[in-house]
């Protein structure tokens, strides 16, 4: 060791910046699928802490409920079938309203994005509508359509529509001018340029619109059912809120949340399918 330092002529060893790399034979242990493992841990830890806090009397069960209490509420209400009509109604409202919004909103966005001048005429109005919390119009819609399911379709439709249209327009406008020039220089027709360049490059934006729109549609379902309904998951939540039944309220909220997560996963799949030509980010 000493001999080494002298021959090398490096500075005296105590001043020397020296790094040894004696790595253990096994590499830094990496857990397979870390996000999933830690996700489950995080989820379970919170549930246990929650239950413990109630059982130890640190919080009142009548207000905060607890995982086991929510579970038994679920067993009861699913067991006697009381929940099914609520779920079915809300699902129907969401599906029909959202489907209508897709059928109208995406083509509308494609048109407004493609035809520049029409887009310019509508732009300020659309921006205003986009900035408006459309839930403020729910009372009017219920006045117009009555208390039945038609009003809910309309609310959900309106909630999701603007988002879908606006993101589609953004997508159309985001098409790379170089790609459009390529298409034009090869003499592509307007239609071919649209299908070969504009449409593929706007897909990610449309999918984002779907994601946000799905969430807003869910907001529409809940708000409409809060205001005027006698069936539906929003009604179930508000009814049990009035009955001071925290467990059932939480059950309802969790069902809505679980549905939201499910829709998010489905849209994530769609996104990945359409984005398979895109280089993965890390």
């Amino acid at each position: 060791m000493a001999a080494q330092t002298t021959t090398s002529g490096l500075a005296p060893s105590e001043q020397q910046a020296k790094r040894r790399h004696p790595q253990p034979p096994r590499m830094r242990r990496s857990i397979k699928n870390e996000p999933l493992v830690f996700g489950i841990i995080g989820f379970v830890v919170v549930l246990i802490a929650w239950e413990a806090a109630i059982d130890l009397g640190m919080a009142r069960a009548s207000l905060l409920s607890s995982p086991t209490r929510i579970w038994s509420a679920a067993v009861t209400d699913f067991g006697n079938g009381a929940l099914w009509p609520h779920i079915a109604t809300s699902l129907l409202e969401w599906t029909v309203g959202f489907a209508l919004a897709i059928v109208v909103g995406i083509p509308l966005g494609l048109i407004l994005g493609t035809f520049r001048r029409i887009g310019m005429i509508v732009d300020p109005l659309l921006s205003a509508l986009y900035a408006t919390p459309t839930v403020a119009l729910v009372p009017l819609i219920i006045l117009l359509f009555g208390i039945g399911i038609g009003a809910k379709f309309a609310v959900v439709f309106l909630e999701a529509l603007v988002t879908l249209t606006v993101s589609t327009i953004t997508g159309v406008k985001s098409a790379d001018p170089r790609h459009l020039e390529t298409a034009r220089s090869f003499g592509a027709s307007r239609w071919l340029a649209f299908t070969s360049v504009t449409l593929p490059s706007s897909v990610p934006f449309i999918v984002t619109g779907l994601r946000i729109g799905a969430g807003r549609a869910l907001v529409g379902v809940i708000v409409a059912e809060f205001i005027a309904a006698n069936v539906g998951i929003g009604f179930y939540i508000s009814l049990n809120g009035n009955l001071l039944n925290a467990s059932r309220v939480m059950l309802g909220v969790l069902l809505v949340g679980a549905f939201g997560v499910f829709v998010g996963i489905v849209i994530g799949r769609i996104q990945r399918y359409f984005d398979r030509w895109r280089p993965a980010i890390r």
């Binding site: 500075a11 020397q16 790094r19 790399h21 790595q23």
Partner: peptide
């Protein structure tokens, strides 16, 4: 990167003038 200290080597030694 190993010389720069951004990565640890599996084996070996790096000495740099202080």
């Amino acid at each position: 990167k190993i010389v720069n200290g951004l990565l640890p080597a599996t084996e070996g030694e790096i000495e740099i003038k202080h």
